[in-house]
Design a protein around this nucleic acid. Structure first.
Lengths: 252, 252
DNA sequence: CGAGTACTTGACCCAGATCAAGCCATGTGG
DNA sequence: CCACATGGCTTGATCTGGGTCAAGTACTCG
């Protein structure tokens, strides 16, 4: 079918090229802005941190007030269902945004907690919105970032095997941390499992299986991606890990 | 836990109240705009249709150019995976938007096809973006709608049993078609199943089971919701069907 | 009225969940 | 500096929700 040719227009290798390491100020949001506009953006940003591991940035049910950007460290967002079980909705790494899903209901639909020591930019939403009104590039960038989260989240909502999900997760994580082959998993297995809708045990077994196949080398929180092509063959069409976002937009 | 009290701030009953039937011009987008601003919006909109069932609005891989709004009829969006299998990503009813996920990659990540005869509004994205720059209410509304899609999609990505999914789907569908208790399923079982990540047979069996429990009355494409409270007890915390969106924002 | 497609129903199967030990790092107090 | 507790992780055994396969059945549309 014609469509499949385009299936991976946004594929792993293209994105890897597009993705580079970023320093503190190199957030998603300012991409494409003039230094002048970046300054305007900075004027409405409050910085908070370092926050120690386990600090909540906001909680489910809180009134929505701001969009957050991660400067350093990592966070997860999660919600608690009616049976009291936690569901991890996303991991958020330096440069990425949180809180976009709260704009509509004006109430946070999830909680956000630091996974290790982290510092954060807080952007009061009404000020950000007003600024976006003046700065076309900012409006554009917000729309793009929300759009990306939308694709990722909807890919996450589609049907994948456990292997596909974990392979996609590892590849995505690698992209988001600068395309390096060795990763440090800041989040415990339980959270990875919850995020991928798997049991902790399944994640553990998959790590073992991938290692036996020579795809990765796992040692506690350190994971080295040995055979990236092999991982892509398994989970390449799974943008699952990208929630929170690639650092850079696609090459023009 | 404290959070669970807020768990269903956005619950079915509240939303039902907030949701009313809508006529052709009563799209999601103009909500909150002055008649003047609505006129500006209308000036950039192209209307197309009626399109006969099975017509593609866009296809995976097409260059992104416009956002679409459904005026009448219904559409589904879907993508084809590397094994050639179709995954339904959403159903889109009158008043709802399509194509928002293509802003980021600038390429459509899914295809959209009419499920029956439908007419559509086409909003060229760069003109829409420029207009949103001038009309704060429009920018705000676009952000809200994207945010909502984000919540729905991320709820869809979390773990639910087959019963929860189908009950949530039916309730959501009812909300989106004006809160009536009797629904017409424009989409075939296969598409419902794909959307909910279930097998067609499972959907069929669940319909039978729900009917035996006295929750619904099914007859081919007609479904009557008999025991709404019962359905809410099963799938109430599942916003799964809402993809494409509630017609109205939350009460103030 | 016949052919195709959508839907239903039953029998069986399997990927991944759950249950149950055990393992191994890190921390804590004696 | 070592017992030993604690929580995260692994591994094995078993179970099960929902998938798959295989027949039907019933609309629908030439």
């Amino acid at each position: 079918m014609a469509a499949s040719r385009y299936n991976k227009i946004v594929n792993i290798s293209q994105l890897r090229k597009a993705c580079r390491a970023c320093s503190l100020r190199d957030l998603c949001l300012p991409v494409g802005l003039s230094t002048d506009d970046v300054q305007k953006l900075e004027s409405i940003v409050n910085v908070r941190g370092p926050l120690e591991r386990g600090t909540h940035l906001f909680r489910e049910g809180d009134r929505f007030q701001a969009i957050y950007a991660v400067r350093s460290g990592a966070l997860k967002t999660y919600s608690i269902d009616s049976e009291g079980r936690e569901h991890v909705l996303g991991f958020h790494l330096p440069g990425e945004l949180l809180g976009l899903d709260a704009i509509y209901p004006r109430v946070n639909r999830c909680s956000a907690v630091t996974l290790d020591s982290a510092s954060i930019c807080i952007m009061p939403f009404n000020r950000l919105e007003r600024l976006a009104q003046d700065v076309p590039g900012l409006q554009h960038q917000i729309l793009r970032l929300m759009s990306k989260d939308l694709s990722v989240s909807s890919d996450r909502a589609t049907d994948h095997t456990a292997e596909e999900k974990l392979a996609g997760f590892l590849l995505g994580l690698s992209l988001r941390t600068g395309g390096k082959a060795d990763l440090t998993l800041v989040m415990p297995r339980r959270d990875i499992a919850s995020y991928l809708r798997l049991a902790t045990e399944t994640v553990s077994r998959l790590f073992a299986r991938f290692q036996k196949k020579g795809l990765i080398q796992v040692r506690r929180k350190r994971v080295e991606l040995i055979d990236i092509a092999g991982l892509e063959a398994i989970g390449g069409n799974c943008d699952i890990a990208a929630y929170g976002g690639y650092r850079q937009p696609l090459p023009n």
